[in-house]
Nucleic acid binder design. Structure first.
Lengths: 153, 153
DNA sequence: TACATTTGTATCGTGCACGATTTAATCATG
DNA sequence: CATGATTAAATCGTGCACGATACAAATGTA
């Protein structure tokens, strides 16, 4: 088999395991997040808002590397759950500002224990803490490299 | 800020960059795959079939870590594009066997150059080849660990 | 042989993702 | 200050993902 053909095999690829790992982690989160009645992307939005209580739609998009056509419906669902409110900025009428409600802010307390629950799922003794740290570093570099490429497309 | 609260930040997490990297790689693939009129998941199915021309739906699901409720519609779309055929196995009437058509087999030639096009996108000088190899190894271990967890759920 | 259990695939409903496009507000430049 | 370009958000259509469920074929067991 030629080198070129060998590259067509799943195992030699980087993208498939990224895709699989992403879906698998979402599945690990699902039962934990169900307690808060959140999906994983909804949880990501809440994470951003717990860090900055008041953000424009655009600011949320930038942090999550998502487009408004994905985020807008997400925000509407979270608004329906009374976790946040959306209102046009009077400063710039194009902007929509997103704010946590009291309920949304309170949910943060329930979320505090999530990371350790998830980390416990990841830690299987198979991968050392040092390896994970290195992995995480490379992963972030990769995200930044890819994001720069994609933004130029 | 407590350690517990710090973990609620996006930057400290493993899952968000996995999710972002997965979406970004799919975006990098999109224009390349458009030439073949394939989406990324469709390309994954074709990769599997180029390796084993004749597989059951279940065998495809196992290789891609997907369920039949995702794969069945995917296969139907590929069937509509005349890239494969589906037929009940006479051996075991529950099984549906998937086979490449001539057109599906021919498409492989066009796909041969894809991996190098993608690798070129990844390679930015930012990440050394050794780092990528190590990263890939950890990533596969992670996929296996997570998959084992998820299958026990 | 009956009948319960398991297995393989498909169906349905919901929620992302995202390309393409739309609309309205703001900005820039002559 | 007029008008063309840019920006922010939303809308629409398509294709995944996946939980829950259905259903038929195969298998196991009394």
């Amino acid at each position: 088999m030629s080198d070129q053909a060998a590259r067509l095999y799943l195992d030699n690829q980087l993208c498939f395991p990224l895709y699989a790992a992403s879906r698998l982690t979402t599945k690990i989160y699902a039962p934990v997040l169900k307690e808060l009645d959140l999906t994983y992307p909804q949880y990501l939005v809440m994470l951003v808002l717990w860090q900055h209580a008041d953000l424009s739609v655009n600011a949320i998009c930038e942090r999550l590397l998502l487009e408004s056509n994905t985020v807008t419906p997400l925000l509407k669902r979270l608004e329906q759950k009374k976790l946040l409110t959306r209102r046009r900025s009077s400063d710039d009428e194009r902007r929509v500002m997103v704010s946590l409600t009291e309920k949304g802010d309170q949910l943060r307390k329930q979320a505090l224990s999530i990371p350790e629950q998830i980390v416990a799922s990841f830690d299987d003794g198979e991968i050392s803490e040092a390896e994970i740290r290195q992995f995480q570093e490379t992963l972030w570099t990769l995200v930044n490299v890819l994001n720069a490429k994609v933004e130029k497309m």
